[in-house]
């Protein structure tokens, strides 16, 4: 991928450590395999109020080990199709991180930003450079820069469109 990859948005919600995939997307809705429909059940049991707060392009901010637990891809899909532009966390559980990249949802690792950002903050995320800026104050936080493989997948819109170019008829 060439050039810069920057996103702008507002922090819609701030979550704690170890937010698991059952909290993000309860098991009882796993038989919904239509990705767009998963958004209707985002945080359904624990934080249903967040759903209505999300405007397109907003960010979620979380503590460490975000997305731990099950491999359910619906957890990532629900966040993405609810309109979230990126998740910024101190760290991600590994399957969730891979699912995010594969579905084209930027997952940004930044313990500094995760600790500092507040709900309502307007933020710019430079994925290539690994910098997160709080726009109101100009404060900058370092983030792990995207590795080239992940950048390629995100630029393509995820693994399916990426492979489609190669294998699609």
């Amino acid at each position: 991928m060439t050039g810069e990859f920057k996103l702008r948005g507002r922090v819609a919600a701030r979550l704690g450590d170890n937010i698991d995939t059952d909290v993000i997307y309860p098991g009882r809705f796993l038989n919904i395999t239509d990705r767009e429909k998963t958004a209707e059940h985002l945080f359904e049991l624990a934080y249903p109020e967040i759903r209505s707060r999300i405007r397109p392009g907003d960010f979620l901010v979380a503590g460490k080990n975000f997305g731990c637990g099950s491999s359910r891809e619906q957890a990532t899909a629900a966040i993405k199709y609810a309109g979230v532009g990126a998740v910024i966390a101190a760290s991600f559980a590994r399957i969730f991180f891979r699912n995010s990249i594969n579905l084209g949802l930027p997952a940004v690792v930044s313990p500094e930003a995760a600790a500092a950002l507040q709900e309502g903050d307007e933020v710019e995320v430079d994925l290539t450079g690994g910098v997160i800026t709080r726009l109101a104050t100009g404060e900058k936080f370092t983030a792990a820069p995207l590795d080239p493989r992940a950048a390629e997948l995100l630029a393509a819109g995820g693994l399916v469109p990426f492979l489609k170019r190669k294998y699609g008829g």
Partner: peptide, 18 residues
């Protein structure tokens, strides 16, 4: 190890994974 469904579609296609 566990992977997500989309990633598995990649495995079903290519038989390999990073």
């Amino acid at each position: 190890t566990g992977i997500g469904a989309t990633e598995m579609a990649g495995v079903w296609t290519e038989g390999r994974l990073w």
